[in-house]
């Protein structure tokens, strides 16, 4: 099992080849703007006094075009990491993380792991300091997949990603956010944890330049009656100084979710 150092903003380094990719943040658009992210390019150009053209070319060379109507001489956009529930369509608030290597926990033991949380990137239209949802894209289309937690007749549809444990130095800021997970096995026997399912809309994302932080996750493996289940709850982190909270556009559940349909 991998253990990790604490993740403070100072520790977050970009070991990925970030090259000259654009940064997360707010941009003021007066005439033209070009942004570049891994496999994705965004260009905004003025058409006339009140209209702008928005073009995004994605990793599969598909082009998405929109016209932005802006009354003022210019407008603002915010490019920020968002929770991965929007692509290809918003169908669920749940995320299913399948661990490529199962995590074994001895009886009554705890572990602290870091797993990559797939992220999407949102483009928000800013007016009067309010962010309106405008566009979403992903730098890794393989994350736009679905999976079912539970049997077909009563399972929960979730966004799905296969992930492996990370170490503190690994970074992939446009594709993943590092999520710290505290796992506690309350059972009096050893168990293997192979998947984590939770309502991801409860999680907040924070960004600074190209770095992304996400709320932690608490996972408790326990008994409820004769049933062995996993209780999953979001663990809020303090917003670090100088970091910005990503705009939230989804309803939060704010409750404990119990994985009652297996966890191996």
């Amino acid at each position: 099992m991998k253990t990790v150092d604490s993740i403070s903003p100072e520790n977050v380094t970009n070991s990925i080849k970030i090259k000259n990719f654009s940064k997360y943040g707010r941009y003021s658009v007066k005439d033209d703007l070009e942004l570049e992210f891994p496999s994705t390019k965004i260009s905004i150009s003025r058409i006339d006094n009140e209209k702008f053209s928005y073009k995004r070319t994605n990793s599969e060379n598909e082009s998405i075009n929109k016209i932005i109507s802006a009354k003022s001489p210019g407008f603002g956009i915010e490019v920020a990491p968002v929770i991965p529930v929007n692509l290809p369509k918003h169908k669920t608030d749940f995320l299913f993380l399948r661990l490529t290597e199962k995590l074994f926990l001895n009886k009554n033991s705890s572990a602290e792991i870091v797993i990559p949380l797939p992220i999407e990137i949102g483009v928000f239209y800013i007016e009067h300091n309010k962010a309106e949802t405008f566009d979403f894209f992903t730098c890794d289309p393989l994350h736009s997949r679905y999976g079912l937690y539970g049997p077909p007749e009563e399972g929960i549809l979730c966004k799905y990603a296969k992930v492996s444990l990370m170490n503190a130095n690994e970074e992939s800021p446009f594709v993943y956010a590092k999520m710290r997970v505290f796992v506690h096995n309350e059972l009096d026997k050893g168990v293997s944890l192979g998947k984590i399912v939770f309502p991801v809309t409860d999680h907040e994302l924070y960004y600074k330049d190209t770095n992304v932080l996400v709320d932690n996750l608490k996972v408790a493996i326990k008994h409820r009656g004769a049933l062995e289940l996993v209780e999953v709850i979001q663990d809020t982190i303090q917003k670090p100084n100088g970091w910005t909270k990503s705009p939230t556009h989804r309803h939060k559940t704010d409750h404990k979710f119990s994985m009652e349909k297996g966890f191996d």
């Binding site: 290809p88 399948r98 997949r145 679905y146 999976g147 799905y160």
Partner: peptide, 8 residues
């Protein structure tokens, strides 16, 4: 295919 489930 993005709509084909990974699990099952």
């Amino acid at each position: 295919l993005p709509y084909v489930l990974r699990e099952p």
